[in-house]
Design a binder for these strands. Sequence first.
DNA 1: AGTTACAGTGAACAGCGTTCAGTTCTCCAG
DNA 2: CTGGAGAACTGAACGCTGTTCACTGTAACT
Lengths: 249, 249
Amino acid sequence: MTQPDMPTPPWERPPRRRTPARVPLTRERIVDAAYTVLDREGYDRLSMRQVAAELGVAVSALYVHVRDKDELLRLMYNRVFEGYDLPEPDPARWREQVMDFARQGRRRLLGHRDLAKISLGNVPFAPELLPHVEKLLGLFAAAGLPRRVQAIAGDLLSTYIDGFVLEESLWRDRYPETGGNAPEQMREEVNDYFASLPPDRFPNLVALADLMMDESNDYRFELGVEIILRGLASYVGEQDPDEESRSRR
Amino acid sequence: MTQPDMPTPPWERPPRRRTPARVPLTRERIVDAAYTVLDREGYDRLSMRQVAAELGVAVSALYVHVRDKDELLRLMYNRVFEGYDLPEPDPARWREQVMDFARQGRRRLLGHRDLAKISLGNVPFAPELLPHVEKLLGLFAAAGLPRRVQAIAGDLLSTYIDGFVLEESLWRDRYPETGGNAPEQMREEVNDYFASLPPDRFPNLVALADLMMDESNDYRFELGVEIILRGLASYVGEQDPDEESRSRR
DNA sequence: AGTTACAGTGAACAGCGTTCAGTTCTCCAG
DNA sequence: CTGGAGAACTGAACGCTGTTCACTGTAACT
């Protein structure tokens, strides 16, 4: 050990500890590993044991850093929003800005297998996520929406995004193999199925058979967002809807 | 035992077999039991073993009637729509009719604990459910919506309903005990939390604190549906949106 | 140098979905 | 009434799962 009264010569123990021999486990590393397992195995096979194995560590070691699997899933969820940078609200362009938010959200959820399943099980009220909620609300406020509409618009939009992506991944799960042209084949089969229904009992389904499973998820997604946007826009400048019923209570 | 050579008196064994001693297991009875377990234990504790125990039967007996747990969940999901009776489409009242569908959907999902979780994991394309999809589409067709909007409107609406109810139940799960006034207390706590945020960093959240967790889920739900309805209504009579981009492909 | 604090270990527990070789029961043909 | 076919159901087992706990080894501080 070093003498207390002598300065330590620099070559002796250069930094006090160069490499901690064992890389210490951290929440970050655990979440990283969890994402690796998620992408490789999918949500149903995402288990504490798999995550531990990915890190070359005993299962119980995880529980030192993470209360339980639920907390791990919450930590994974929080990361979905990392690096989301919403622009300053521009009242003139709020619709494009919200559409952009939606597109970005979908892209992030599609970035990891089954991530939508995790997202739907959580409410974005973790402290780390509040800045993002705040910014989205800012967009709606700038648009001039009534307060009550502002308060619900974020929910409505996020629910749609999560639900849409979840449905995308459900279809993917049902047609897992079949090589590269799986989505194409799936679309064809489903459309054929709808088209083959008895037209007297299912006139509308038959008539829309070609559109139920559109060739472009992107288009269907954006049309959905557009419908919501038009609904929101119809409230611009209005009084809080049903305001009097509130003061009546 | 009855004597072999004597005619059986009618009161002895009136029909050849009165009660089959063991009530035969059927899909119906299994789904019934599954709902009982779901209501009592919740989705996470809904297991094949619990269902079997509920029926007083070995686990493996279930697998004679049901391929796997996934199929059981699908059967449970199908029952959500049982007895849904949509009215004949009335073009003049399509908005009320759709709102009614939404209200009915939410009420059904709220009818059993965690049912929304099951609903979100399924697409309503089982043969038994197609009549309901057909009828909903009929409403949109009668409204005079463009075909592509018709094709997506059902998805949009169902996703919203499922997502909204799921979120309701997530909040319920987080505040399970605390007696009768749990929702009231929860609302207060959450609102206070939002109101206590630093106003310079979260101006919008603070400003909307009183509305984020409204006193009335009913009101928030219907406002969401109303937004969607207004968005849909804005398309009435329009050409298929982006139609030319489709023919361009 | 000895002590303290703790990250990480390995075994264990209870419960899960699913399978399968057997047993039991029902019903029909002879 | 008997015998047998076939379905319905059982019990045990396999390999998973989340979580806990007494333990070991290492690092840091006095």
